[in-house]
Amino acid sequence: MAQKVRDIMTGHPVCVPPNTEIKTVATTMRDEDIGAVLVTEGEDLRGLVTDRDLVVRALASDLGPQSSVGGLCSEASVRIGPDDDLDVAVWLMRTHSVRRLPVVDGTRPVGIISLGDIAIEDDPDSGLADISAAEPST
Rank of each mutant, 00 (worst) to 15 (best):
L86P: 00
P124D: 04
R6F: 11
I8N: 11
D85C: 02
P102Y: 05
D123Q: 06
M93C: 03
L45G: 01
D105Q: 09
D7V: 03
D122G: 04
G64K: 07
N19E: 14
I80N: 05
Q3L: 15
G70S: 10
P18I: 11
P18V: 14
P102H: 12
I8Y: 09
A60T: 08
V16L: 14
E32M: 09
V103L: 07
P13D: 13
V14N: 12
V56D: 00
G71A: 15
P109T: 03
E32Y: 12
S114W: 09
A76Q: 08
V110Q: 03
L86H: 02
G64Q: 08
S74R: 07
I113N: 05
I22N: 01
D84P: 02
I8C: 14
P18T: 11
R99D: 03
I131Q: 08
T50K: 01
D83V: 01
D117C: 01
W91N: 13
A119E: 06
T138H: 14
T24S: 15
V25N: 06
G71P: 04
A36H: 05
T107L: 13
A60H: 02
D31Q: 14
V16Y: 12
D85A: 10
S126A: 01
V56A: 03
T50Q: 06
E75N: 10
G106M: 06
V69I: 15
T40F: 03
G127M: 08
V88E: 08
E41W: 07
V55E: 00
